[in-house]
């Protein structure tokens, strides 16, 4: 059996960091804005390079705190499946992204959270405008990150994207959220 990789960080016990670290907050915000831009502009390799080797990318369905080892999720990628997702997008034959969605997203409400070990816990909101062949769609999500300093650079070890309407019937969402 593979370990239950997400039990440690489902957001249930999120708490803000004890002391506010301006410098770290700024650095984290810059990281999140860069990640947002890479997603919006479909720079797939650069986005994939933001992940640690044990990265987990999770978009739950039917709630904010379901158990992905028991219940269906929209996305529940380990590191190799993140790589597969990127490889598919890069074929140019991922029809739902050909042409790619045109995107602009706003990241806000960035909070530093306490987290065990050396990782930096972060909570934020994302609001994403998408337009594609179908039409215009607004998406909104609450996100949780676990960032880790690797060789001086921040990397994503964990990213959870909880769409606020993930309990409802939603349109295809095949761009990077």
């Amino acid at each position: 059996m593979e370990p239950d990789i997400l039990k440690h960080w489902t957001g249930r016990s999120s708490a803000e960091a004890a002391a506010f670290d301006h410098e770290l907050h700024h650095e984290v915000a810059q990281f999140l804005y860069r990640e947002a831009r890479l997603q919006d502009t479909h720079e797939y390799d650069a986005w994939e390079a933001l992940w640690t080797e044990d990265g987990v990318y999770w978009a739950p369905a039917n709630g904010q705190d379901t158990d992905p080892e028991r219940e269906m999720s929209l996305i529940y990628d380990n590191r190799s499946r993140i790589a597969l997702r990127i490889r598919q997008l890069k074929t140019g034959r991922r029809h739902s992204q050909t042409p790619p969605s045109q995107l602009a997203r706003i990241i806000g409400n960035i909070e530093l959270l306490t987290s065990g070990g050396d990782d930096i816990g972060v909570a934020c909101n994302a609001q994403i405008f998408e337009t594609n062949l179908r039409g215009d769609t607004m998406w909104a999500a609450r996100c949780l990150y676990r960032l880790r300093r690797v060789g001086g650079e921040l990397k994503m070890a964990y990213k959870k994207v909880a769409l606020v309407n993930n309990n409802k019937a939603i349109y295809t969402i095949s761009f990077l959220i």
């Binding site: 369905a61 028991r70 219940e71 269906m72 309990n167 019937a169 939603i170 349109y171 295809t172």
Partner: peptide
Amino acid sequence: SAGFLHHRTR
């Protein structure tokens, strides 16, 4: 009982 994904399409 693993829960459903609900995929809307036009």
